[in-house]
Structures are given as C-alpha cells and as structure tokens.
C-alpha cells in the first residue's frame, strides 16, 4: 500500500507554516484555503494589508522566497510522498496580478484577431504563462504557443488556423 497524504492535510501544514512565519515577523495573519484539486492547492495569508506588504516585497520578491521555503518545508515533512503542487499568496497579491494579467492578454488577443498579426509577450515563469494560455484560449479565433527556453520562455498569441 502506498502512503498517501491528501491535499487537505498538506494545505493545512502549509497554512500553519505560513501563520507561524507571519508571527515570527510580528505580523498577525490567518491562512485561508483558496483552492484545491487532486494534485495542487493554494493558500493565501490574509490580514492587515499594510503589515502584509513586508511579506510580499518589491515585485513580489519576498512572496517568491516564501513559496520556496514552503515547498522545502513540505519536502522535509513528506519525503518521498506524492506532494501536491503548492501556490502561496499573501494578501491576495498573486490573485490580483493574475486577474490583471488575464485582462491585459485578453485585450491583446482582440488586437491579434483584428489585425491578423501575431503578438509575442515578454518572458514569464510557468505559472504566469498558464494564466496567459487559459485566458487567451477562452477566446475563439486566437491561439497561444510557447517559444524559447527557460528562463526566457514566452508566450506568443497567434491567429487561429480554423
């Protein structure tokens, strides 16, 4: 029998880890379970926006670091097990950015359809590229492709063939 640990338990562990981290910063915050499916989940640390800024950092740098240590913490606690992919957010920063990015590329998609000219985006990480693919592919008449190698892999919006 394989030892499985469910996504909810992992989400709980990351939530407690994040609340403890906030506390060590002297920040009162509460972990919220934002989303979960069979192999991934998202936890958001909610609290006073002014205080949480320190945990987000310039361009979300501190948040990236929090994501990295959260992943490492889970690897130590659950070595060799099927771990879910985790997404960490603070004060809804990532979700606001995701919405803004989705809105921007949907506007760009309209321009691609009108002009018939493809449009390349700047290099993005895999998570942001997924936001772009999902947002653009909702729109008929335009497709997305990824080109280039990490860390400069980027999405191009192209006119759909059909």
């Amino acid at each position: 029998m394989t030892t499985e640990i469910n996504v909810e338990e992992q989400q709980q562990m990351v939530g407690e880890f994040l609340e403890g981290l906030a506390q060590s910063f002297g920040v009162t915050a509460k972990a919220e379970n934002v989303a979960a499916d069979e192999d991934s989940f998202e936890v958001n640390l909610a609290g006073n926006d002014k205080e949480l800024g320190l945990l987000i950092g310039p361009k979300g740098n501190h948040l990236v670091a929090i994501h990295e240590v959260s992943k490492t913490m889970l690897q130590r606690r659950l070595p060799g097990l099927n771990r879910a992919r985790i997404r960490v957010d603070v004060g809804g920063y990532r979700s606001r950015r995701r919405e803004a990015l989705a809105a921007y590329v949907q506007e760009l998609a309209q321009k691609v359809i009108e002009s018939g000219v493809e449009k390349g985006l700047e290099p993005m990480n895999a998570a942001d590229r997924k936001v772009v693919h999902d947002a653009v592919n909702e729109i008929p008449g335009v497709n997305t492709i990824s080109v280039g190698d990490e860390p400069r892999r980027r999405v191009v919006l192209v006119v759909a063939d059909d």
Binding site: L21, S24, F25, G26, L54, L55, G57, N61, H62, V64, A65, I66, E68, V69, T72, R76
Partner: peptide
Amino acid sequence: GRVIGKRGRVANSIRTLVRAAAVK
C-alpha cells in the same frame, strides 16, 4: 544541504526573508 538547497536557492530565500525582517 536542506538549508542551502540546490544552487543555494533555499539559503537565498531565507536570506531574502531575514533581510525583510531586519527592516523592522
């Protein structure tokens, strides 16, 4: 090894957060 991580990624993340804390 765990604290440093591959190519120092974990160590750098810890440094980033400790530096953020030091602002306080």
